[in-house]
Structure formats: C-alpha cells, structure tokens
Write a protein that binds this DNA or RNA. Structure first.
Lengths: 113, 113
DNA sequence: CGGAATCCAACTGGATACTG
DNA sequence: CAGTATCCAGTTGGATTCCG
C-alpha cells in the first residue's frame, strides 16, 4: 500500500476534486448506465439547475472522465458519455458505493438537532 | 454492480461527505499510519488551522471513522486513532489513491489561465 | 435544446484571540 | 496541550433572465 504520505499531491484529494461537486456523483452514475442527453440528465436529476449541470459536465469533461458530442442538427442535440478513461473510474465508484451503502445503513438516523 | 440509481440516497455522495473537508483525506492517511496526537497532526499538516483540524476530527469521529482518547494527565494528551470501523475504510482509500495517482500523472500540467 | 450571464444567499475555511 | 469563540474572505451553488 502506498498512500503517498510524503508528497504534496494527495491522490485521495484528487478523486474528491474530480467528484467534488454537488451533482457530480449522480451525473457519473447516470452516465455509467448509458449515454445521456443534457435534457435527459435534467430529468434524471430534477433538483439540479442548468447552470450547475453545465458547469459540472464541463468539469468532468476537462478531467477527461466524460465526452461531449454535439450533433449538428436542429434542434441541438448534445450527448454526454463516459470516455474510455472515465470507464477506469467505474471500479473506484463501485468500491466507494459499496462502503457508502454500508455507511448509510450503519447510522439509520442522525439526530436532527 | 449496484449503483443504487433509483434511491434518493447516493452512497458515493456519502463517501464524499465523510471525506469532504479540505483536510480530511490527509488526516485519514496519517491516522492509517498510526495513532496521532493533536499536535502531531498539526506538525504533519502545517497548513491546517486549529479550528479546521478540530472540526474535521470531530466530523470524522461523528462518522465513526476515528476514535478520540483523552488521557487525563497534565498537560492534556489526546490521541486520535482509526476505529475498527474506520479500518474498513482503508481499502476504499487505497482504491481512490491508486486512481488518483494515475490521474495526477495523466495530466502533468493544467494551463494556468 | 442546450446553453451563457448575472446576481445573490449559504456555506467553508482562514486569522486571530482567548482558555482549562 | 488541546482546544473554543469570533469575525471575515472566498467559494459554491441557486434563481432568474436571455440567446443561437
């Protein structure tokens, strides 16, 4: 195991950075299932604003995790898909998901106060 | 694979929440190595403020990931250690760390502008 | 349809001072 | 030593409006 304790770069923070936006985990999960249009994601994540959806998609694209394909038709059609590189992220998300599920079940309620 | 697409709870967000503070990944990495005192962590993470170190330690304790032991001596001695439950988190951090290392190497420089 | 631009509220984290 | 308390700046995200 190498946790890179002695480097200034922290790889765990890197992962947090890639996923660290309010809607990025959900976007990734939906794109793992299949390619989605912008409007599909809006329907799948009703609470997200257009601004944040756009911004987080741009972030994930810049990280190389997803790919954006513009189909030059009217009305505009833009599709988002996991890139090949992004697919290497799936096992990481799986491991996180499994621990997270267990963690949710572990604490059935948080005291509200 | 079960990514819990259809639940309102998102287990990936849960992991992000547990680790989602500026210094939490580093705190966890140091505590994986060994039990540490408050002042040890301050030395190991020079840039962290007392306020944030305290707050993040409390957060991680509340999540059950770490344990806080007060030794009733003068001067005060408080030790932080990974709990048994927190040790179940290590493999998750490892997987994240490996992908993160690769991701750092993948993009040697970000355009500053 | 798929955005961009603007303004604003909420939250996060830093600096500093004080304490059992 | 190991905190707590307060104030403040920066960042994140939401609401709204407008556009090719």
């Amino acid at each position: 195991m190498n946790l890179m304790i002695n480097t200034s770069e922290c790889p765990i923070e890197t992962v947090i950075h890639v996923l660290g936006g309010k809607w990025k985990p959900r976007i990734c999960r939906h794109l793992i299932e299949s390619t989605k249009r912008f409007s599909d994601l809006e329907k799948l994540i009703p609470a997200v604003s257009q601004k944040m959806l756009t911004q987080h998609l741009r972030d994930l694209e810049r990280e190389g995790v997803i790919e954006r394909t513009i189909h030059p038709v009217v009305p505009p059609k833009v599709e988002y898909a996991l890139s090949d590189y992004g697919k290497t992220f799936i096992p990481v998300l799986e491991v996180m998901s499994i621990w997270g599920q267990n963690h949710i079940e572990r604490k059935p309620e948080e005291p509200a106060s």
